[in-house]
Design a protein around this nucleic acid. Sequence first.
DNA 1: TGAAATGTTGGGGCG
DNA 2: ACGCCCCAACATTTC
Length: 458
Amino acid sequence: MGFLRVAGNRMAPVILWFRRNLRLRDNAAVREAVETGHPIIPVYIASPDDAGGASRWWLHHSLAGLDAALRTQGTSLVIRSGSPPQQLAAIASATGADQLIFARRLEPFARSEERALENDLGDALDILSVDDSLLNPPERVMTQSATPYRVFTPFYRAASRLGEPASPDNSLPRLQAHEHGLDSLPLEALGLLPQSPDWAGGLRESWSPGEDGALARLDALPDAVLRYAEHRDRPDLDGTSRLSPHLHFGEISVRQVWAAVRAAESRGMAADSAEALLRQLYWRDFSYYLLFHFPRLPDAPLREEFERFPWVDDRELLEAWQQGRTGYPIVDAGMRQLWHTGWMHNRVRMIAASFLVKDLMIPWQQGAAWFLDTLVDADLANNSASWQWVAGCGTDAAPYFRIFNPTLQGQKFDPNGDYIRRWVPELTSGEVYPAPIVDHAEARDRALEAYQLVKAAR
DNA sequence: TGAAATGTTGGGGCG
DNA sequence: ACGCCCCAACATTTC
């Protein structure tokens, strides 16, 4: 494309629509916008999935960080709410912009947004959507018979054969500002922060949202996950990357994470740890892949026979689980860590989820909804795929009869009890701790019995 | 990226 | 010395 810097700069501006890619470095949409040589109007439009209390808190700070970074370059983020086609059309007609650039998203509502955009604005605007969020776009990994994979391992093999991702471009791009005079909502107007009460104290202590915070976490990666293969299942040890919320909001790219792992490997991180960590990135790809190919993933079981599973709708038990008073220390510790910090160790997520779905037989969708509301890394694809996996109704092999014993899991993965004592202080303080709300052995039998109905219906 | 039930083996106590 | 039993350790099967 010709690059002409016209005196006085009368070139039509480009709209750069930020979505779940709230960073400047190694951002394909930013790169495309910069390469046009045209002035850029950075835009964010409040979206229906700006949902979930903890996630909204994060989003506020991530947007604030992006806006601050843009302001150091003499521009700023135009913040709107409403339907993207309407808002973007209004911006285009007010500024004479003739091009729109954004990173593609894979969630069902986002895809229909993008279709509407193409329909409504495709004639007036040159629309460029780029693949940027995954190692591989979801269409690229298919079976021989051109159907989507349903099981992780074959997916992983096929995706790995496509090679490693490109090296990230970690330089800070320069965005040419455009004098647009557009209205922008103050960030506060989006109402993303908790008001009264302000429950975000634990979140503030635990996290630094935004691209700077993400890069700091990435810098800490080599130390944090040096022994990932041995430590990743130990909630008492702090051996995971804690990158999930940064990745969810696109404050860093998957390529940057990949490169950081490879770099750590070349400086002494064991190969098995590096591989295990990279494998997690493929799990993330797989979740989005499943959501793309099976858009009902968030609400309907992929194994249809589970529609007849006799789930129990019990508000009191659900609340006991949510509030961390099930009487099972490892479960309660996890649920309290979640409530306090907006995050839960992955091993404990599996244990807590298994308890809800199998011991209490409460529908997995209710657990998924709670996680979406309380996790700072709340992510429709990862959350839906993981809950279906735990519930045994997903495509992957996690048979329903695999039932976690919360006591054994605690002994195995929190052998000294450090984790449970940290989050359930009454265990040591002598305060009253609830008796188990169900007997695990009985609950297990009941769940297996219920599973017979599903099997018989198959 | 389970756990419990059931089966098998082998060492050691003991009559 | 030998067979019998107990039971822990490990393996396999089942849910």
